[in-house]
Simulated assay, not measured.
Amino acid sequence: MRRLNVRPAQIDECIQKSMFAFSFKPQNPELQPGELLLLQLVKTEAVRLGKLHSRIDFALVFDHIEPDHDGAISRLHWPKENRVWPWIVYGSATVPTIPFSLEDLGLSVDYDGQTNPRYIEPRDEQLIRPYIQWTLAEVPEPALQLVSASEVVQTFGQKRTLAAIYNHDRIAVLHKVPKRMVTIEQFTRNQFLADNLKSYYGNRCQVCGKDFLPDYGVAFSEAHHIQYLAQGGLDVSGNIAVLCPNHHRIIHSTNAQFNRKTLTYEYPNGLREQLLHPDHFVNAPPFLALG
């Protein structure tokens, strides 16, 4: 695992292309395929943006490194930097994290400074790994210990869990990966994303507030894609509502329309039902404006 310093102007390209640039090729030890590269905001920018305690939102999964002999790759991907780097790092994926800062974890070494990349000691890596949301990214990790969505919420709280969901969404929006069709009418989706949202709301319907746990002893809800995946909808939180089975079925049956301005479901007969629990729509970051 390594720590990389990155500025806000660079980070979207790093997330979208799973790329980074180095001034020198890491040695002793060399980078290994599958190694995590933590994208950490430089401290001055983190202070300016109010993210001193959440400097890391993403990590790259290292794949390989190539020389940029004439600077063409650097200029293509980071034109505003007005500089070139001799080495370009390519990742196999970008993984969201629970927002965190290395300084807050009580690590054995101070990993601050400007050096890129900064090697992280194995004993400290073990403290960092719980923040890496492999399952939310649907990226396999060797010897992955699967955790449920409820465990994520219990461990990190609602606010940080929702922030990690938004980190997933930022990757999904930037990558714009074509839908993978399983059958003619069924598309793959990130079940862990849906489970995180359902757990965030305590499995209560966002429309009526129905909670099955008191009556039936089972926490149950369903995730509804507002714009169907088959119609080009994104598998991101801003396109998902947590519903009870009744509201899920009636919305499908009537083709009720979701009004994002009023956060209301509008039915053909004129009935309007406003969301009782609209948190993840109200607090959504600007990049997730889906129209």
Rank of each mutant, 00 (worst) to 15 (best):
L4W: 08
P8Q: 08
P8R: 09
A9G: 10
Q10T: 04
D12S: 09
C14N: 04
I15F: 05
Q16S: 09
K17N: 11
A21R: 06
A21F: 11
F24K: 15
F24M: 10
F24S: 15
N28E: 08
N28V: 07
E30K: 06
Q32K: 03
Q32F: 05
L36A: 12
V42I: 10
A46G: 00
R48D: 09
L49Q: 11
L49V: 10
K51A: 03
L52T: 02
D57E: 15
F58T: 07
V61G: 09
D63V: 05
H64N: 13
I65D: 14
E66T: 14
H69V: 11
D70F: 11
G71T: 05
A72Y: 06
R75M: 14
L76N: 08
P79Q: 10
W87V: 03
W87A: 02
I88V: 15
I88G: 15
Y90M: 00
G91Y: 00
G91M: 09
S92R: 15
S92M: 14
A93T: 02
T94F: 14
T94G: 08
P96V: 05
E103W: 04
E103L: 06
G106H: 07
V109G: 03
Y111D: 04
G113I: 02
Q114V: 13
T115M: 14
E121G: 00
R123Q: 15
Q126K: 09
L127N: 02
W134D: 08
W134E: 13
T135C: 15
L136K: 11
L136I: 06
E138I: 14
E141Y: 07
P142F: 01
P142I: 03
A143R: 14
L146M: 14
L146T: 14
V147R: 11
S148T: 14
S148M: 12
S148V: 10
Q154N: 05
Q154L: 05
T155S: 15
T155C: 15
G157S: 01
K159P: 01
K159D: 12
R160P: 02
L162W: 03
L162H: 08
A164Q: 13
I165V: 10
H168V: 06
A172E: 14
V173Y: 13
V173A: 09
V182S: 13
I184H: 03
R189N: 12
Q191F: 03
F192I: 04
L197V: 02
K198G: 03
S199V: 00
Y200D: 14
C208T: 12
G209H: 01
K210R: 12
F212E: 09
D215T: 10
G217M: 03
G217K: 08
V218F: 12
A219M: 11
F220G: 13
S221H: 09
S221W: 13
E222P: 07
H224Y: 10
H224D: 12
Q227S: 07
H248K: 00
H252A: 02
S253F: 10
T254L: 11
N255H: 12
L263E: 01
L263D: 01
T264V: 13
T264H: 11
Y265A: 07
E266W: 03
P268L: 01
N269Y: 08
G270T: 00
E273T: 05
E273N: 11
Q274Y: 05
L275V: 01
H280F: 09
N283V: 04
A284C: 07
P286T: 00
P286W: 00
P286N: 07
F287Q: 07
A289W: 03
G291K: 08
